[in-house]
């Protein structure tokens, strides 16, 4: 092993990596915000007793949970523009695919969290005359969300990693920028090492946060 690691060519391309990091964060945060918001509605729809509401929501969740994210991204980039009147750039396609993917997973987290609240809490809220939405807002969600936070943080970790898949449709996120640098400078070893490190530094605090939060939750119960 007489290889000499030379990071200078990677360092010279730091601007490209910074752009990539920016795009990774932009894609990840967009998808997380959409997933958390839309997931609440899809989750509530799945929880509904009305079949016209819960059936489409369930179908949506199952499709996105049971197909690879890579396939979803490719589909939104190549197939979706053909069957829809929109022209779609790489960011939109990736954001669409990963947001819907995140929505499906978040919907399950919301549903699971809500179902984990004991029947008696609903009973007590109902017995003092609360409407369904009051029961949900005042009693069920505040308790359920505490239990959901670790799962959401895990989702955020997964999502940040999944953004790298958008490199296959040439969206300029970190992985794509890394590929470009490696090809141009013939330094894949150094470049991908740096890319991995940047991802680690970005994601590890989140993972750490999950552990911390779970420990705190464990103590308070």
């Amino acid at each position: 092993m007489d290889r000499i690691w030379d990071f200078s060519s990677v360092f010279a391309s730091r601007e490209l990596l910074l752009v990539g990091l920016g795009n990774t964060v932009k894609l990840g945060v967009t998808c997380l915000v959409i997933g958390l918001t839309a997931g609440l509605f899809v989750g509530a729809a799945r929880y509904s007793r009305n079949r016209l509401v819960n059936w489409p929501a369930s179908a949506f969740v199952e499709v996105f949970r049971n197909t690879p994210a890579l396939v979803q991204i490719m589909w939104f980039f190549f197939a979706f523009p053909i069957i829809s009147p929109f022209n779609i750039d790489a960011f939109t396609a990736a954001a669409l695919a990963l947001s819907l993917n995140a929505t499906a997973f978040c919907a399950e987290i919301y549903r699971g969290g809500i179902q984990s609240i004991e029947r008696g809490q609903w009973d007590a809220a109902k017995a003092i005359g609360m409407s369904y939405s009051q029961q949900m807002r005042r009693i069920i969600l505040p308790q359920a969300i505490t239990r959901m936070v670790p799962a959401f943080m895990n989702r955020a970790v997964e999502l940040m990693k999944m953004t790298s898949l958008a490199s296959v449709i040439a969206f300029g996120e970190l992985m794509h920028q890394g590929k470009a640098i490696a090809t141009y400078n013939f330094n894949p070893i150094e470049t991908f090492t740096v890319v991995a490190l940047i991802f680690f530094v970005l994601i590890y605090p989140l993972a750490l946060g999950v552990l911390r939060f779970e420990a705190r939750l464990g103590r308070s119960q």
Partner: peptide, 18 residues
Amino acid sequence: IPIRTHVGMVFQHFNLFP
């Protein structure tokens, strides 16, 4: 809902909001 506001109920397992 107005019925339930006029009729109070207490449960076996208390069901306080934790």
